[in-house]
Design a protein around this nucleic acid. Structure first.
Lengths: 250, 250
DNA sequence: AGTTTGTGTGTCTTGATGACGCAATGATAG
DNA sequence: CTATCATTGCGTCATCAAGACACACAAACT
């Protein structure tokens, strides 16, 4: 009985993979971390496999550490992708490495069931790093992402949909914005995720009513036009809001 | 390379299982479908494995068909449970079948990563049926469920938590109540899931404002006290509400 | 200095929500 | 047969959140 297989001398569970939709925010644009396969030059979500002694969350954390250099990433599993059809579209071994010299690489040809995670990271702190089968790992603007391998477009869309839902009962921004930020920046983040415009004044009133922000004395200098105030997240209340939800319907 | 193994002559993927938290509603009580292991007499959630040609959703549907006799069940995956510690607590083969006569049964001793589903079914239409390694399959009142095998208590709690969250932006009841029902019955369903009492009059106003109910002329006879009106779900609006959400925060 | 553009703050209205009142109904008890 | 009682139907009031919008202020550019 083989419970696992070798891949570059590491033990992974058969049939189980994970894919990460890593969101970042920069230049008022929502960005997603992508990797590019060495040989096919196709784009894909960063992903990985599960070691013998790892939970799938630990595995995802490890993968993200490798891809971004960051620990302590906000991570959430949101869906399992398991259509048998996924496997048909799996890259062949040669797609991945360009040769089949290593018999261990046949391991890639099995059917995979993939657990989707989405992650929120501070754009400025991440250092995108490709994995062994990729030659590029970079941020792409959400609206400039075209065709990804396999069902990765579907995974990305589902992640966005989930993020939008979560927005309704969870605070957001701490993991995506720098420590100090302006109200327009926070609003732009919301608008980008929701893909719609919000009223400036109503947005501010609502966000402030959650009590998750500290208003600073300082203003953002350097920009053209009137200098906006800087804010920071009130971590204590932010965590509370994450746990208890924001509005709570019933 | 073994991509799968035999178990009673059927091919399942290694390492992957699924567990279902099946909710039903009867006698103003929220109930969960449980099975009892033949040899250890321990209680567990109904579950199963994934065949070569199945998605995990199809596998869960098949399992639920076998356990309840029902097709077209409301089903939703809500979490993946993958702690390596789960495996340590896996039942031994002898726990499951009482002997190791069949070498295929060693298959159970591998590590499993389990996808959790919750299901909502019409209590009166389900016919609980045990699987091959169980001697009982019955409904248990939510508040009378004690210790389950492995991490099944944790799975159940997470399912409940998810259900409560969904309640905030999705209609609920069509899958759990008979075709025609009274307002107090619907309210009791909500109260049971939320584990708190709601104001009768405010509940009615709010539920009716969603436009997912048709009020019938008929009243429920037979009960002591004033006869309440009967309602049915407006399926068209109900489906719309499922898709678009109820309140929509932003 | 006036214009432009974005920001800070406030008002008005509408609608949803929570708390609660009261009359009507239908079985049951005396 | 009538009083009682629990439950239901329907309504009111106050509060608060949310959308639409007005106006003044600040910083840079012409």
């Amino acid at each position: 009985m083989t419970q696992n297989s070798n891949f570059y001398n590491r033990h992974f569970l058969d049939h189980i993979s994970l894919d990460c939709v890593v969101f970042g925010f920069h230049d008022n644009q929502l960005k997603v971390l992508l990797i590019r396969r060495k040989y096919t030059k196709e784009w894909a979500l960063p992903g990985g496999f599960v070691k013998e002694d790892e939970s799938i969350e630990v595995a995802a954390t490890r993968v993200l550490q490798e891809r971004t250099g960051l620990d302590d990433i906000f991570l959430k599993q949101f869906n399992v992708f398991s259509e048998p059809g996924r496997a048909n579209r799996n890259p062949t071994v040669t797609d991945l490495v360009g040769s089949v010299a290593n018999p261990d690489l046949e391991w890639f040809n099995q059917r995979f069931i993939s657990v989707g995670f989405y992650a929120l990271v501070d754009f400025s702190k991440a250092e995108p790093t490709p994995d062994s089968i990729s030659d590029l790992c970079i941020w792409k603007n959400l609206n400039e992402i075209s065709s990804l391998i396999l069902d990765h477009n579907q995974i990305l869309n589902k992640a966005l949909e989930t993020l939008r839902l979560q927005l309704n009962y969870q605070p957001l921004g701490y993991n995506l914005l720098p420590d100090r930020f302006t109200m327009p920046e926070l609003q732009k983040l919301y608008e980008t995720i929701l893909a719609k415009e919000l009223d400036r004044r109503n947005f501010q009133r609502r966000i402030l009513s959650y009590g998750i922000l500290n208003k600073l004395e300082e203003r953002k200098t350097g920009g053209a036009h009137k200098a906006p105030f800087l804010y920071e997240f009130n971590l204590e209340n932010y965590q509370k809001a994450l746990q208890n939800g924001l509005n709570g319907g019933w």
